[in-house]
């Protein structure tokens, strides 16, 4: 019998909730002209946004540009932030838009495993053997092969440690819709991963 392990999946979420009032204060200060306070918000959240962009694009260099662009948009469109909403979902929406613009501009689909720079390839010492290493590469490629919307929802639910309701707020849809999307994305990932495994075996 398989043991279904469950995880809170929101390790950083609890910490975030404590910080949120402060995020809000900082962002309101930014809106009122103290734009320098965006520096603090950057310090606090840029790694998160960077990881999101990195997972979405698979490219380190592109992700750094995208993070920069996302925070610059946060400055430029600071007046569109509503004081009654949370800061992080708003920032994520900007990052999503930046990523979508990147995909539109670059036409081709996000780069595949072969394009990954050496710096982000799995560290061999952390893996048990060559087979496991290959499996990680294939899974990464399978993830990058998913359509943008499915990859996005999967990244948000698996890596960003978010609850359904948080993802729903971020994507602007219902919790039910998020559940359906995550379910479909996982099924497609499994299929793609299986195909890649078969290809590599043959």
């Amino acid at each position: 019998m398989p043991v279904i392990t469950t995880e809170d999946g929101n390790g950083s979420g609890g910490e975030q909730r404590v910080n949120q009032p402060e995020d809000l204060e900082l962002m309101i200060a930014v809106q009122q002209g103290e734009v320098g306070k965006m520096g603090t918000l950057f310090e606090r959240h840029h790694a998160r946004i960077y990881n999101f962009c990195h997972r979405m694009t698979g490219s380190q260099a592109a992700s750094e540009d995208l993070v920069q662009e996302a925070f610059m948009r946060a400055l430029k469109y600071r007046q569109t932030f509503r004081g009654d909403a949370d800061f992080l979902p708003w920032l994520y929406r900007l990052a999503r838009n930046v990523c979508n613009d990147y995909f539109e501009k670059n036409q081709r689909f996000p780069i595949t495993g072969e394009d990954l720079p050496e710096g982000v390839s799995p560290d061999p010492s952390a893996l048990d053997n060559a087979q496991q290493k290959e499996q990680v590469c294939l899974l990464r490629e399978a993830l990058l092969r998913l359509p943008v919307e499915r990859r996005e929802v999967l990244i948000l639910s698996r890596f960003e440690y978010r609850h359904y309701d948080e993802i729903a707020q971020l994507l602007g849809c219902s919790v039910g819709a998020v559940k359906v999307r995550v379910h479909r994305a996982m099924n497609q990932l499994r299929e793609t991963y299986r195909e890649l495994l078969k290809e590599s075996e043959s």
């Binding site: 392990t5 960077y50 990680v136």
Partner: peptide
């Protein structure tokens, strides 16, 4: 479940921290 955990391990195996250059640029 395996796939879900493998997916989680993709993160473990990569450098999480963006370079300092990013902070300087911003």
């Amino acid at each position: 479940e395996t796939l879900w955990h493998e997916l989680g391990r993709l993160d473990d195996s990569r450098s999480e921290v963006p370079s300092d250059r990013l902070t300087r640029r911003f």
